[in-house]
Design a protein around this nucleic acid. Structure first.
Length: 437
RNA sequence: CGGGGCGUAGCACAGCCUGGUAGUGCGCUCGCUUUGGGAGCGAGAGGUCGCAAGUUCGAAUCUUGCCGCCCCGACCA
């Protein structure tokens, strides 16, 4: 993409409404534009990142055996009356009336909808286990939206819903998602920690929040220091026993959010306990028959008798992750994207646009990168060098190639890594090879 | 929902107290000079001062009502 033909409205100054770093950087990098409180438009750069994260999440869900569907944003009220949540949900639910006076709502979540789909079509235990997921926009009318996309009212979320014959089956489904989440966050360049979460009235031990460590995190977390050195599960199809082993390994070490943490009775000694702030980026939950019961979602078991299915739900806040990743990955000059979610892999800077030799060298490398399928943002504008460098640092692409007349005399270009700041002088061909391999 | 703050050009702000026809910096447009870390000079464009009512000869400025946004708290992916 040529910057001269792109739409990337960057700002030099900090917008005053943005207090936290990810929100400031997203606005300054021209990734989003606020529409109203907690509701944002995604501009090209932000949209690319959102789609990258979405794709990583999708791939890991697919690998874990979940099947993608897409449910609507607008749901009928009656569906929610079945589970008694139409009245219980309160003001966070955005209620709408259509032209015929029918009560509708903008979905804050989809348990009712997916259970309705399941019960309409699945009749036999032979069709289980089943895990259906979708990545869809949701709306929760938060009393106080804040922190940019990290706590918006409209947000993009991946929700998976598992259906099993019994608790044992549901536990396998749960473990499978638990492991998929560890892999997902690792691919996104994040160190995520699973915390035992409050299961509320349902009880049980099958609920975990995944949090990303960041100084600006919304809540305080306490954890055993060894949890940070645990290995991310490898990329393979695990057996039931292997899944349980991984979950046991990750949950045997202490980790709790402040509301669950009891300083008096903490099992970890002071020397091993680390306290930091974290951002919740996912939540997995087993809730048994809470929805299958009122929806009468049953399948015929092996003995021919109907069994009410055991369910779980598994959420990842996709749009929230954009902010969460920036909170975890930035420096004083701007964003430092993990390569897996960067909007472009490399920024190409033409230091003297209009100079014949310089233009030719840049255009040539640009064409070759494009031909090789490398995502490149080419700053071909005639802005001064300082502005170009500052802008590239702000948007945080993993690699930067700078071509100017001075280097070209010696046949070299500057090759820079955004994360380490390391610069090298390479021939254009060598730079190309680095980026293609 | 309780407490606090703010709405003046695309962005950040001054002007308001003490009413008199709208200003600064950045950004934008044009010209020239520049070109290796957010350039210099010159010339421009751009604002029903959030909305409405009131007071007044006259309101960005004073009064009242409304709307929007932000921050702290309680709540949440």
């Amino acid at each position: 993409m040529r910057l001269s033909r792109y739409f990337m409205p960057t700002l030099k100054e900090d917008p005053k409404e943005a207090q936290i770093v990810s929100h400031r950087l997203m606005l300054r990098a021209g990734m989003i534009q606020q529409s109203s409180a907690g509701i944002y438009s995604w501009l090209p750069l932000g949209h690319r990142v959102l789609k990258k994260i979405e794709q990583v999440v999708r791939e890991e869900q697919d690998k874990a055996g979940a099947v993608e569907i897409l449910m609507p944003t607008i749901q009928p009220a009656d569906l929610w009356r079945t589970s008694n949540r139409y009245d219980d949900y309160g003001k966070e639910m955005l209620r709408i009336e259509d032209r015929h006076g029918r009560e509708m709502l903008y979905g804050p979540t989809n348990e009712e909808q997916v259970t309705d789909i399941f019960r309409s079509h699945v009749k036999s235990y032979k069709d289980l286990p089943l895990n259906l997921y979708h990545i869809q926009w949701k709306f929760r009318d938060e009393v106080r939206p804040r922190f940019g996309v990290m706590r918006g009212r409209e947000f993009l979320m991946k929700d998976a819903y598992s259906f099993d014959l019994d608790y044992e089956g549901a536990k396998v489904a749960y473990n499978r998602m638990f492991v998929a989440y560890l892999k997902t966050y690792a691919r996104l360049g994040l160190k995520a920690i699973p915390l035992r979460a409050d299961t509320g009235p349902i009880g049980g031990d099958l609920s975990h929040e995944f949090i990303v460590l960041a100084d600006t995190g919304e809540s305080e977390v306490f954890y055993h220091k060894d949890i940070l050195s645990l290995q991310t599960p490898e990329d393979k199809d695990f057996s039931t026993e292997e899944l349980q082993g991984i979950v046991d390994e990750w949950t045997s070490l202490y980790a709790a959010a402040d509301e669950m943490h009891d300083a008096e009775n903490c099992p970890v000694s002071d020397g091993d306990l680390i306290t930091r702030r974290g951002i919740e980026v996912g939540h997995i939950f087993h809730f048994g028959t809470k929805y299958s019961e009122p929806f009468d979602a049953k399948v015929a078991g092996p003995d021919g008798k109907d069994v009410t299915v055991s369910m779980g739900s598994y959420g990842i806040g996709v749009s929230r992750l954009v902010g969460g990743i920036i909170e975890a990955c930035h420096d004083e000059n701007g964003i430092v994207w993990p390569e897996s979610v960067a909007p472009f892999k490399v920024g190409l800077i033409n230091l003297k646009s209009g100079d014949e030799a310089c233009d030719a060298a840049c255009d040539d490398l640009y064409a070759k990168l494009q031909a090789a399928g490398v995502e490149v943002l080419y700053d071909d504008t005639n802005e001064r060098a300082g502005g170009k460098f500052a802008k590239m640092d702000l948007i945080g692409l993993p690699w930067q190639v700078t071509i100017g007349p001075r280097g070209l005399k010696d046949g070299v270009v500057e090759f820079k890594n955004r994360s380490s700041g390391e610069k090298e002088e390479l021939s254009p061909e060598a730079a190309l090879n680095r980026l293609v391999s």
